[in-house]
Amino acid sequence: MSIPGNQRREQILGTLSEAVSPLSGTALAEQAGVSRQVVVQDIALLRSQGWPIQSTNRGYVLERKTTRPSRLIKCHHSVEQTPEELNLIVDLGGHVEDVLVNHRVYGRLSCELGIASRRDVKAYMEAIRSGKSSPLMLITSGYHFHHVTADSEEVLDEIWQALSDAGFLAEKSDFEREAFGQ
């Protein structure tokens, strides 16, 4: 016996609000006892009601206003070095919220990542390797930005220093400092 739609959507919201990592449509569907397509429709309805539900490459997340310190970090490296960069950040306690590029023709392009563990890094890299698409950073010759959050400014300083020591940091241009306000 299935539950009514509004109760199911409340259940989905409750599950997303308690989740510490993204949840796939399949996982939400199994929990609610419906098909993944029903969950996709429920998510669309919830979004239309103003709920800030984001889609990531690993599933859905309920966007939360964070009180954690955040820093926009500019990096440059090869695609092969991506796991090293991401693991360095999460091993020190950082969360990689997104990736963005500032392209001279296309402007600012970004994608939510929500990477907070080595498991997340592995899943992200598997998705990149198995897809027909390329990482966003390739359209800007390896230059890209991440919003990184952590429990304290000191942790962000440690992450910044480790990225610098690894040779992954890139200097922001005057234009980028002005455009990003940082």
Rank of each mutant, 00 (worst) to 15 (best):
K132A: 12
C111Q: 15
G93C: 04
N87T: 12
C75S: 07
M137P: 04
T26K: 13
L23G: 01
P22W: 00
E63T: 09
R47D: 01
C75G: 00
D98H: 03
G59Y: 03
D42H: 00
A123L: 13
E112A: 14
F145E: 02
I115M: 07
Q81V: 10
A116L: 05
L45N: 04
A29D: 08
V121W: 01
E30V: 10
T26V: 11
A127F: 09
L86S: 01
Q49H: 10
K74L: 06
R119M: 09
R64V: 13
S130T: 14
V40N: 10
L72P: 02
H147P: 08
I53Q: 00
T82S: 11
Q31I: 10
L136R: 05
D151N: 15
Q31N: 12
L23Q: 12
E30G: 11
M137N: 09
T67H: 13
T67D: 15
V121M: 06
P22V: 00
S70R: 14
E126V: 13
A29T: 08
A150K: 03
N87H: 09
Y106C: 13
V40M: 09
A116R: 11
D120H: 04
K74R: 11
S152H: 10
Q41L: 15
C111F: 07
E112I: 13
L113A: 00
H77L: 11
E63Q: 12
L100V: 10
L86P: 00
V38P: 04
R129N: 14
G59C: 06
S141K: 14
H146F: 05
H76N: 07
V61T: 02
S152W: 12
Q41S: 15
I43S: 04
R129H: 15
V105E: 15
R119C: 11
I139N: 08
Q49W: 10
L28F: 07
A27T: 08
V39R: 02
G59Q: 05
V148R: 02
D98R: 04
L23E: 03
S55D: 09
L45H: 08
G50F: 01
T66R: 07
T140S: 12
G93I: 10
A29E: 06
V148L: 04
S70H: 09
W51F: 15
D42W: 00
C111I: 14
A44F: 05
Q41A: 15
T26P: 02
